[in-house]
Write a protein that binds this DNA or RNA. Structure first.
Length: 204
DNA sequence: GTTATGATTTACT
DNA sequence: GTAAATCATAACG
């Protein structure tokens, strides 16, 4: 079952990020269907979170889609190379988002390998936000797309039990000062498709 | 118009 | 372990 808008448009982005663990991310391009189980996420909150692109009404041409009502995609290019895939949550003007950092390949693995240019089925295939997007065929042409159906959507699945979810500081957000310490990264304990990048603890 | 920088990955020492 | 790759975005003149 496709996740309804009401799932995304709740107020607690941290709760949504946890509940997304275990859900299925699905893309379909040119008849090729790829399915991945979400195993790692990070929460970004528009209000009061310096690590978020939309922090403090920072409404620009890039971040404008974050102010849409929850249930759309925010895709942007990082370091000139990597497409990062985010899900917008909460209601209009709240600008919360969940970054998908890792998935476990379920279906369409051959297509993922081809897009990534490697034969492995190990963690290197989809562990890390840039890798997830590349493997699933996600790029900036999907900016602002509705996640209610093809070519990109999410489906419900058994939630990951709370005792298998680990939390910690987010990755790559040292510039955010004290907000870099917020434990808003969530991943499935022991899953091989969780990214191995380590968060930065040194905030000065 | 110019310039600094990043929600990362990879290749090197 | 450290550094380079690489370009859209945002801030400034």
């Amino acid at each position: 079952m496709i996740l309804p808008k009401s799932f995304y448009q709740r107020d607690d982005v941290c709760l949504i990020a946890q509940e997304l663990l275990g859900k299925l991310l699905i893309t379909q391009f040119d008849g090729i269907r790829c399915v991945g189980k979400i195993v790692e996420t990070e929460a970004y909150r528009g209000w009061g979170d310096a690590a978020c692109h939309s922090h403090r009404e920072r409404r620009t041409n890039r971040t404008k889609v974050m102010y849409e009502p929850g249930g759309v995609a925010y895709v942007y290019l990082c370091y000139g190379i990597h497409n990062l895939f985010n899900i917008i949550t909460n209601v209009e003007d709240r600008a919360d988002a969940v970054l998908i950092r890792g998935i476990e390949p379920i279906e369409g693995v051959a297509a993922m390998q081809e897009r990534r240019g490697m034969k492995t089925t190990k963690g290197e295939l989809t562990a890390g936000p840039g890798r997830v997007s590349q493997a699933m065929g996600i790029d900036r042409s999907l900016y602002g797309i509705d996640l209610g159906g093809p070519p990109v959507w999410l489906e419900d699945a058994q939630s990951t039990p709370a005792n298998e979810i680990e939390t910690g500081p987010r990755v790559g957000v040292a510039y955010a000062g004290k907000d870099a310490l917020l434990p808003w990264r969530y991943w499935v304990r022991g899953n091989g498709y969780v990214s191995k990048a380590r968060p930065v603890y040194d905030v000065g």
